[in-house]
Design a protein around this nucleic acid. Sequence first.
DNA 1: TGACTGACCAACA
DNA 2: CTGTTGGCCAGTC
Length: 119
Amino acid sequence: MKKIKTQSDFFDKVFEVVAEIPIGKVTTYGAIAEACGIRSSARTVGWALNSAKNSYLPCHRVVNRFGALTGKIHFGNPQLMQDLLQGEGVKFDSEGNVILADHLWLPAKRNRFSKTKNL
DNA sequence: TGACTGACCAACA
DNA sequence: CTGTTGGCCAGTC
C-alpha cells in the first residue's frame, strides 16, 4: 500500500482528532499536529480547520497553546466562538482565554504536552 | 507559474 | 533570559 502523504492524509487526521474533542473540552493546534505526527505543522492544522469550519467539526474547541481563541476571527462571529464554548461549560479567564488547566483535552496520542502547558 | 502567506510551536543564538 | 528563525501543508495572489 503506497501511502502518499498528501493533502487528505494530514487534513483527515486533523478532522478526526477535532471531531473527537469532547463537549466542554478544548485542544491545541500543537496537540493536534502532534497527534498527526508532525508537531511542526501546527500552522497547517489551522488551515485544516479553515477548510473544516464549514463542516461539522467543532473548530471552536481548538485554541492555541495559550488558550486564546486565535481562530475566532475566521468564524465570522468572533463572539460566537466564545459563546459556544461557554455554552458547553468552558470557562474563560480575565484575558478571554480558555482555562486550559480545566478544559485542556489531549488527543489519544501523547500527553507530553502537559509539560509545556504549565506556564 | 512562482512565491507568500496563514487560526502555530519549538529550538537555537 | 529574550529574540529570531525554522518548519510543515495547502490555498491564494
